[in-house]
Design a protein around this nucleic acid. Structure first.
Lengths: 412, 412
DNA sequence: CGCTATTTGTTCAGCGATTGAATTATTTGC
DNA sequence: GCAAATAATTCAATCGCTGAACAAATAGCG
């Protein structure tokens, strides 16, 4: 899922055009003002003739459109600016979480065009029923999108758990799912998206991964390597390296919640001891702050903590400081290992960032070997709630930008 | 440094040939028996006509040669097998370490053609003098290689420390180096290698990184993602993801020695507390085994430990078990984070692997969330001593295989 | 108002690289 | 000795990029 698509196999005559389509489209997507054909020629190194030909294909395929305001003023023939089309292909993002279902539609430019959130406690709901509800909501979103000229070309589903590369949800502990064959269950419903060569109809992925992708593609562009930590009941991380999500050998990377921070400490449900989750997970913080867990539904615990901290409640402040310190120990290890310069606190951590960041930064400062030369930024996520759904939809839309040839082959 | 070279900018007509040259040459390099042109055509998806044209270029540039034993038997015209040339471009690997200088030459096929190790305590030697000695040894190696028809096209230098992307050695604590401008110092000597477009004349990198690259390219091919841990006085790791070394934002990844394994434990020279190095570094093991450090030069400490352990010395066995447990805690964290399935113990750890592996595996089994589904392999490095020098030379040779166009443009 | 300089975008012949089919080359097996 | 089989080469056709010439459209200036 990088911007430049590396050809895996034979490079044929047509690959040339495919690569240049992606190159030009990627430039248009990355530009902050609508570039002209001439701008694109100088930026890409292609000749204006080639750029014109490539742009013609992109215009014919409705992936870009010409914008009215000229991008330049001065002597000479006025340029025609090129922008990503606000009609055409779009991505569908789906999310099943503990206390809500979310659906959203993101267009080529990365804009969230529709967003539907259905709040409900999903834990007692059977997986098939939860997915059926999701499909129904997604159908509404698709119809709304169609009225605006958007065609859904792929879907990505975020779940809070381990997913293998076939889409099987091995384990989603907080949802109570185990070995749920999501693609098979969704195949029983009418298809939500149009099939496009090169774009998988459905991708199932961990919510932390997809939230990290959302952060990666948020505007203005941020760093291309960072760690995105989703602090919910469990703690997951999405690792973005050189503009691409690193999924690991089996797609199960990012289990930062089970980094040992006190090797002989509290036992963890994973079988280990002293895992980060036992010190900085939602339940640990809530308990340490003196809040009985039972009286708080999962979705309000974070808000309540932020309220208390805002009001200066000493127990809450201490709990957050301790959690931040534990988080900092783990993060310092990750930064030492991967040499990242940006850490994003997402999910439930986003709202708690004002209290978590200082202790995290303190641990980094004292534990990271290279901290003196290279400062590490720790900041809350830019995306709000349902970041995973937005990231999921964005990942589909990005795929069209990165590999436009498939879409163009489909329709004239 | 991946096998498939992704074009960064404009894709012109000539890029097509460049990419297919790399594709075909990469196949020849990866094959375990000399493939015929027809084999290559089916393997790459190119037509036989194109493969013939590409191979002609490769033969003309002396990157491949035709092997005598026919790769196939049966009816039909016998195939002509293609192998990487044993003459032509080769990579120069250099290594400055605490107790030796090493130089080696690796050819396109990854064979170590020459290796010179000069044992000496380098700690009291000024960086400029150490490099001057290295250049002299390397000159001999180059001359020997030239007699076999090998042309050195690039050099890579391994140092046990932090290197930035300009080749400046920021800090090599065990060598006593700080802010050593290696490229500038080497520029004062006559050039060792021939300049080839696309191949940097000199790359300076961390020894752990280059040792990991050596492991990556060792035959037979192993996994494309793994963690390679070099256990010396310090503990460094090379992280190989999807066949490429991950260097981090600033090139300082892999500082696994400073992963916190006992957050409130022993103070570390890095400023943190309870770093892995304090529990599994060479000094920690030696001390725990009851050996006075002073009586042992750095290069024999590991050998002595292995001897004692072999003999069943209880102190040594306990020290190794404890070190392995600490290492296992750190490795379990890394595996949880990156979802790797292979961990290679290199450097001084290689000889101690029989005693380190069991406790490492035990920690992984109890702490890694996905261990039940996906077993993790922990094994010693395949390369012996001076693995970093071999990896360094191999990384240069690999570059020619991955981007043959530069070499071909240079000479007929 | 008209001319020139300037910049954008298009057209077109030329060229390099791949393709696919036909052709040549070389061996095994009957 | 001949047919079948497989390998490798040759060659016209095609696709896509290039470079230069050309057309389009505007600002500045007298």
């Amino acid at each position: 899922m990088s911007l430049t698509h590396a050809p895996a196999g034979a490079v044929r005559q047509g690959s040339l055009r495919e690569l240049n389509l992606a190159l030009v489209l990627g430039r248009i997507a990355a530009a902050d003002r609508p570039p002209s054909r001439a701008d694109l020629a100088t930026a890409t190194g292609l000749t204006r003739a080639t750029v014109s030909a490539v742009v013609e294909d992109l215009l014919a395929g409705r992936l870009v459109s010409e914008s009215d305001p000229a991008p330049r003023s001065g002597a000479g023939r006025p340029a025609r600016g090129l922008v990503l089309a606000d009609q055409g292909p779009a991505g569908l993002g789906l999310e099943v979480n503990v206390d809500y279902l979310a659906v959203c539609v993101v267009d080529l430019a990365g804009q969230v065009r529709h967003r539907i959130v259905h709040r409900a406690d999903l834990r007692p709901v059977a997986p098939a029923d939860a997915l059926a509800q999701l499909v129904e909501i997604a159908g509404d979103a698709r119809d709304e999108a169609a009225r605006e000229g958007l065609t859904l070309v792929g879907a990505a589903l975020a779940v809070p758990g381990l997913v293998d590369d076939t889409g099987l949800v091995r384990l989603a502990p907080n949802l109570g799912w185990r070995d749920v064959p999501v693609p098979a269950l969704l195949a029983e419903h009418p298809p939500l998206v149009e099939q496009v060569p090169g774009v998988p109809a459905l991708v199932v992925d961990n919510e932390a991964n997809l939230a990290a992708l959302g952060e990666l593609h948020s505007r203005p562009p941020g760093p291309s390597s960072f760690l995105h930590i989703s602090g919910e009941v469990g703690i997951g991380a999405g690792i973005v390296l050189d503009g691409a999500l690193f999924r690991g050998v089996r797609g199960w990377s990012g289990e930062i919640g089970h980094l040992p921070v006190h090797p002989e400490g509290r036992p963890c449900r994973c079988g280990g001891q002293g895992c980060l989750e036992q010190y900085a997970g939602q339940e640990a913080i809530v308990t340490a702050a003196g809040l009985a867990r039972a009286e708080l539904p999962a979705d309000t615990a974070t808000a309540r903590l932020a309220e208390l901290a805002e009001a200066g409640d000493p127990d809450a402040l201490r709990a957050l400081h301790d959690a931040g310190t534990a988080l900092g120990v783990a993060v310092a290890g990750v930064v030492n290992l991967l040499d990242l310069d940006t850490v994003v606190l997402g999910g439930g951590y986003a709202a708690l960032a004002p209290w978590l960041c200082p202790p995290v930064l303190a641990e980094i400062a004292s534990r990271v070997l290279t901290a003196a030369w290279s400062p590490v930024t720790v900041r809350p996520s830019r995306l709000g709630a349902e970041a995973a759904a937005v990231g999921a939809a964005g990942s589909v839309a990005r795929r069209i930008v990165a590999q436009p040839a498939g879409w163009l082959a489909r329709s004239g």
